[in-house]
């Protein structure tokens, strides 16, 4: 089980790798599309990387509900372990 802080840090690393987002910008209130310029295909890459890193699968229909970094953190927290 990863802590909220660990998830946020891990997610920030993924965002940097996949979409070139500066880790300091990857704060919970940020919207992937509006604030971080992450498009729908990059969201798929993020989902794949989240699965590799945290063992949490995010299917396409769930992916549509994840709008902010905070949404992603909660989803991972809820579904891990």
């Amino acid at each position: 089980m990863s802590s909220t802080q660990e998830i946020q840090t891990g997610l920030a690393e993924i965002l940097e790798e996949v979409a070139g987002v500066t880790p300091a910008d990857a704060t919970p209130e940020k919207s992937f599309t509006d604030d971080l310029d992450v498009d729908s295909l990059s969201m798929v890459e993020i989902a794949t990387a989240v699965e590799d890193k945290f063992g949490v699968a995010i299917p396409d229909d769930e992916l549509g509900n994840i709008k902010t970094v905070g949404d992603a953190i909660s989803y991972i927290e809820k579904n891990q372990g």
Partner: peptide
């Protein structure tokens, strides 16, 4: 085309 599904399949 279900773009996200195909993208996920192709890249994984």
């Amino acid at each position: 085309m279900a773009g996200q599904a195909v993208y996920r399949w192709a890249t994984t």
